[in-house]
């Protein structure tokens, strides 16, 4: 497991307590944090929603799977799926190797105001510290 001070926590995204991130400005991409990818371990499958699917805050929209486990992707915002990262079907490990870049999961059509309840990098780090 990575130590807290080894985690990459970019400041150009906002975080949810469920360990997802959303771009701080449009286009709004979504992925999982470095902490989440490290905790889940090597991914073997990413189940993505369809483009056009509705996203509801707090509801499952896909899964991340390792050899042993199936973890839900919970939407941190309300919106609509605008695009999905097709390369994850061949390379789910992009989520591990580049969680904020090539490993993005979906792009969302949403109001910028959806970001308001999300955490900035410092607040998310503080949350991880409190968990530890």
């Amino acid at each position: 497991m990575k130590e807290l001070n080894e985690l990459i926590l970019p400041t150009n995204v906002k975080y949810h307590a469920d360990h997802e991130w959303v771009s701080a400005a449009a286009p709004f991409k979504l992925g999982i944090s470095d902490y989440a990818q490290d905790a889940l371990g090597a991914l073997t499958y990413v189940e993505l929603p369809e483009v056009g699917a509705k996203l509801t805050l707090g509801e499952e929209f896909g899964t991340l799977e390792s050899t042993k486990s199936v973890s839900p992707l919970i939407s941190p915002v309300n919106g609509t799926v605008k695009a999905i990262n097709e390369s994850l079907s061949d390379n789910p490990d992009l989520v591990n190797s580049d969680p904020y870049g090539e490993g993005w999961i979906i792009e969302i059509e949403m109001e910028a105001s959806e970001l308001a309840p999300l955490l900035d990098a410092a607040a998310y780090k503080a949350l991880l510290e409190n968990q530890a």
Partner: peptide, 25 residues
Amino acid sequence: LGATMGGFCGWDMSLWYPTGAVKEH
């Protein structure tokens, strides 16, 4: 080595190392 540890039958064991369980397999 940076292993992710986890409980297994009363033991704290390495579940995988930073290379990940798929590459280990």
